[in-house]
């Protein structure tokens, strides 16, 4: 029996797997590091097709929560359920193959590969699964994948840098590249950890437009962001984390008016 099934069948667990239109259900997740509670009793539902922003001050536990979702960290208690399937205990590659892609806070690309190769690798993973021994299928002969990768790179504005090595790109360009790496997999759930950090305002607005366009395609997104302009431009619903706990959830307007949020994070004058 897998670790995920162990957790699901744990006596007395009895967590629900979310409602019919819930894509991601985080159930009573708790995580601590050497006695420091990074996450406490976190419950969260992300609905199909929505853009759900998670905001909170530095050290609130936002990135830890994403790490728990993608299998990088194992929660001390609780579980993460995606589309009815328990993710807790699964390996990162298994979680990705189920349809969950992640864009990292610090750009994580393949520095020694070209921009085009960086995007074609996740496309291959999506098409061929987690392992396929195809030692004589020429990578550069994958015309369909290549065309698709070029289209995605065009949508993020990197069409002029196809043959550039990822190692020589600026931080902002690496972020756009990482976004393209996530988008080409057409995930059911895209987790974005500060996707516009390090970008100039013009690029930030372009990324907002791009993410809005994706929203029209129905992809569900969870976005962690410090830039309130990005959050209020994109989010359908917002959850606010502070001290590892969710202190408020609601629509952008509800969050703006929430006194707990004002006190913990946003500040009176910003809202």
């Amino acid at each position: 029996m897998s670790a995920a099934e162990d957790i699901a069948n744990e006596p007395g667990r009895g967590f629900d797997r979310g409602t019919a239109n819930t894509v991601l259900h985080i159930d009573d997740v708790h995580k601590s590091f050497s006695g420091l509670h990074a996450l406490s009793d976190v419950d969260l539902d992300v609905r199909e097709g929505e853009t759900h922003a998670i905001i909170g001050p530095n050290g609130a536990g936002k990135s830890t929560l994403l790490n728990v979702c993608v299998g990088r960290l194992k929660p001390d208690r609780g579980a993460v359920v995606f589309d009815g399937e328990v993710l807790t205990g699964k390996h990162p590659h298994e979680i990705n193959q189920l349809g969950v892609a992640r864009v990292f806070q610090t750009p994580e690309v393949f520095p020694e590969l070209s921009v085009l190769e960086n995007v074609m690798v996740p496309a291959l993973s999506k098409r061929d699964g987690h392992f396929r021994l195809n030692p004589f299928k020429n990578f550069f002969g994958e015309k369909a994948l290549r065309d698709e990768a070029e289209n995605v790179l065009e949508s993020v504005g990197l069409q002029a840098q196809l043959t550039d090595m990822a190692s020589v790109m600026s931080r902002g360009d690496k972020r756009r590249l990482e976004l393209a790496m996530g988008l080409i997999q057409h995930p059911r759930l895209l987790l974005l950890d500060e996707p516009t950090a390090g970008m100039a305002r013009h690029d930030t607005n372009a990324t907002i437009d791009l993410l809005k366009k994706i929203k029209e395609g129905g992809m569900t997104k969870v976005i962690i962001e410090h830039d309130m302009h990005v959050v209020f431009s994109l989010a359908d619903r917002i959850s606010v984390l502070a001290g590892g706990r969710i202190i408020a959830q609601g629509t952008p307007d509800e969050i703006k008016e929430n006194p707990k949020v004002k006190e913990a994070y946003l500040g009176e004058e910003q809202v």
Binding site: H93, L113, V121, R132, Q185
Partner: peptide, 22 residues
């Protein structure tokens, strides 16, 4: 080949490749 490209990606950033579903 596709296999060779995956090996190069392992050398470049194995951790990222895991999160790419490989």
């Amino acid at each position: 080949s596709n296999f060779g490209m995956m090996l190069k990606a392992i050398k470049s950033n194995q951790n990222r490749l895991n999160y790419t579903g490989i």
